[in-house]
Measured scan of single mutants.
Amino acid sequence: ITGDVSAANKDAIRKQMDAAASKGDVETYRKLKAKLKGIR
C-alpha cells in the first residue's frame, strides 16, 4: 500500500513540477524536487 501512495505522490509532484517549470517558477520547482527526493 505504501508503494502505491508514494507512486501517486510522485506523479502528482511531477505534474506540479511541470506546471512550475512552464511558469518559470524556479523556487517551487526546487521545493518539489526536494520533496521527490524525500519520498524515495
Rank of each mutant, 00 (worst) to 15 (best):
A12P: 02
A20D: 00
R14T: 05
M17G: 01
D25Q: 01
D4V: 11
D25G: 00
A20W: 01
A8V: 09
E27M: 04
G3S: 12
D11N: 05
G24S: 03
V26F: 15
D25A: 00
A12V: 08
K33G: 04
K37V: 09
V26I: 12
I13D: 02
R14A: 04
I13Q: 01
A21L: 15
G3L: 13
D25S: 00
V5D: 13
V5A: 08
A34F: 03
K35F: 14
N9E: 15
K33R: 07
A20G: 02
A19H: 07
A8P: 08
T28F: 04
I39Q: 07
R30A: 07
A34G: 04
K37Y: 07
M17C: 00
R14M: 10
M17K: 01
G24D: 02
D11M: 08
E27I: 06
A21G: 03
K31Y: 05
D11P: 00
R30M: 13
R40I: 14
G24Q: 04
G3R: 06
I1Y: 13
L36H: 03
K33S: 07
D25E: 02
S22E: 11
K33L: 15
L32D: 01
A34H: 07
N9V: 15
A20M: 01
A7W: 13
M17F: 01
D25Y: 00
V26P: 02
Q16M: 12
A19V: 12
A8G: 07
M17L: 04
N9R: 13
T2P: 13
A21K: 13
A12H: 10
S22A: 14
K33N: 05
K15M: 08
G38D: 10
K23V: 10
A21S: 05
A34K: 10
A12I: 08
A19G: 03
I13Y: 03
D18G: 06
R30D: 07
G24K: 04
V26H: 11
N9K: 13
V26S: 06
A20I: 01
M17H: 02
K31C: 11
K35S: 08
D4Y: 06
T28E: 13
G24V: 01
G3N: 11
K37N: 13
T28D: 03
M17R: 00
A8M: 13
T28I: 04
Y29M: 05
I39Y: 07
Y29P: 00
K10Y: 15
G38F: 08
K33F: 09
E27A: 05
K33I: 07
Y29Q: 02
I39N: 06
I13V: 03
D18L: 15
T28H: 04
L32Y: 03
D11K: 08
M17S: 02
A7D: 07
K10H: 10
I39F: 14
M17D: 01
A20P: 00
